[in-house]
Nucleic acid binder design. Structure first.
Lengths: 340, 340
DNA sequence: GTGAAAGCGCTAACAC
DNA sequence: GTGTTAGCGCTTTCAC
């Protein structure tokens, strides 16, 4: 059984409303856009005509004439599948969507096409959106940095490449969060601290590794072994295995993401290594992976949903020409559970 | 430290490209849109001019003239927060985004505003999108059903209200899936089967309850106690508690979602009721809640990501005037784990 | 195969 | 406060 699209009769135009209300198109436009310079009578007549006709303004025409689309893009890097499975990204999107729902802006999800990288840039420069949100990504984010000259852009997480002085960035202090986490391990008597670091081509990965090292060196200790993962549970399990295979003992472990820590905890348990008795574990991210870990994970919370709302807020301000801070650092805090 | 948007010089227009390439605007338009009716020379000249100028077509103008936006909306019902935390919705979005990334269409996320319900409809009718995807929602989805007269619409999950014969729907057979699950319990010797049903104002909730009942009646058994939840873990835990408080014994439990089953399993464990020894549990959804359940949950898998891709595919076909099936039923299958 | 001309439906000066 | 007049940058007949 098949069907074809219904032939819809032409939608009523602003001109039709004007005729019906007995006013000019300008007046209709003013009413639709909430201008105060309209008499109550005129406004009433227009509103009635709009209701009777079921008029809805044509967005493309409005956008063409006003040079504003009232829409912003959220650029999704790389594979979509990994994106939505990651509670970090889900929370960011939630914060963005939620903030925009209370604004006149609409959210466009732009999946960066691997097959045609130029497509995203072309879209962004075609005026389809008034600005774009770029999520922290791998070091190939140069093209986005360059886009900042063409339209308002806000980065969530600092780009790894050199960026314009005018770039607007919202981030947490990854170095400081990692340092605090590691210091917590040290304060609990741990002396030989390993780390499962994040990808070293992303700012969050690099900075968290630096924070771990800084805490250790500042305490006069020697760094434990380092293995790198890509923030996912699979990578965490693999990294822990490699850590153990190196045969270097450690009594503390700092993981750059809760997803990796959660999987590491599973591997430790499987090998009969008790947490926190034999090894204390701490990580960054207070998501479901931290909560559901066995034992529940002590971790640094980053306000992800709030960060999503913040980047949306910043972008809207940028678009509307209001002053914005160039760099916003969201606060993190320690959540004590049972893994240290 | 604050900054203001950079004053960007005007973007090059199609006309500028035409001048530079020494052709008319029509020819440039043809090249940009891949028309075959252009000589190789003309095409080369135009492409060079485009590259030199860094031209990107203005989307609003194109959309106004062609009456196509090459963009589709995914309408998100109710609270955004619940939406992104739900693996079902995340998978749907993933499927949609992934399919569209390989098409010339862009995805707009439309959060149905609770404060201004008309806003969504106005947007959809303003030509900002060529069609819309409506996710199964509560019974107040009447307004979306009506929209189908104005633009191409595809429903994921059948609407509970009467809908146009032309409505395009992609769904699973909820009744059959629930029946199969319940029959599996019966085949394993369970005779007194309770259920934690889904919301009774949603098709998935209603149909799954019907399937459960049908299997029981067909087997000549008496139905066990029923409690209703809203698909969330919290609702599952509460429903199980109520089920137990009723004092009616049961040796089998069918839950309408894995999220509810997962939480119910936790509650059963807490009370020392062994699964599957004392009670067998089965549910619908093969998501992380099913996998991570203790014990791992035997469940009916629905191909959620594929369903997302399917609704996107159907909508694009509808928009492009190609024939589409009015109703597509995605296959479900039993995943045997350890809870029965 | 190519160009000229006529809009697409709206906003934004500007005059009244 | 209201109407008139130009476009916004593109697609699309329709001649040639």
């Amino acid at each position: 059984m098949t069907t074809r699209p219904s032939a819809d009769r032409a939608a009523p135009t602003l001109e039709a409303v004007a005729e019906r209300a007995g006013v000019s198109r300008s007046t209709v436009s003013r009413v639709v856009n909430g201008s105060p310079k309209v008499t109550d009578e005129a406004r009433a007549a227009v509103e009635r005509a709009i209701a009777e006709l079921g008029y809805a303004p044509n967005l493309a025409a409005r956008s063409l004439a006003s040079r504003r689309s009232h829409s912003i893009a959220l650029v999704i890097p790389e594979a979509t599948s990994r994106f939505f499975a990651d509670p970090y990204f889900a929370a960011i999107v939630e914060g963005v969507a939620d903030h925009l729902a209370r604004s006149p802006y609409t959210l466009t999800l732009l999946v960066a096409s691997e097959t045609d990288p130029g497509r995203t840039a072309r879209y962004l420069r075609g005026g389809g959106v008034d600005g774009a949100l770029i999520l922290s990504t791998h070091s190939d984010d140069r093209s986005y940095v360059e886009l900042a000259g063409h339209l308002p852009i806000v980065f969530s997480g600092r780009p790894t490449v050199a960026h314009d002085e005018n770039a607007v960035i919202v981030d947490i202090d990854n170095t400081s969060a990692a340092r605090t986490a590691t210091e917590y391990l040290i304060a609990h008597g741990r002396r030989r601290i390993a780390t499962i670091a994040g990808p070293q081509d992303m700012a969050a990965g690099i900075d968290r590794l630096a924070g771990w090292l800084d805490a250790i060196v500042s305490a006069g200790l020697d760094p434990g072994p380092i293995e790198v993962g890509d923030f996912t549970p699979e990578a965490g399990a693999a990294a822990l295995t490699r850590l153990l295979e190196r045969g270097e003992a450690f009594d503390g472990l700092f993981a750059a993401s809760a997803q990796m820590a959660n999987a590491a905890l599973v591997e430790l348990g499987r090998r009969g290594i008790a947490v926190p008795r034999d090894v204390s574990v701490i990580a960054i991210d207070n998501d479901r992976f931290a909560e559901e870990a066995q034992p529940p994970l002590t971790t640094m919370e980053q306000p992800t949903t709030e960060q999503g709302a913040k980047i949306a807020e910043m972008l809207v301000r940028l678009i509307e020409g209001r002053p914005v801070e160039r760099k916003t650092i969201m606060a993190t805090r320690l959540i004590e559970r049972a893994s240290v």
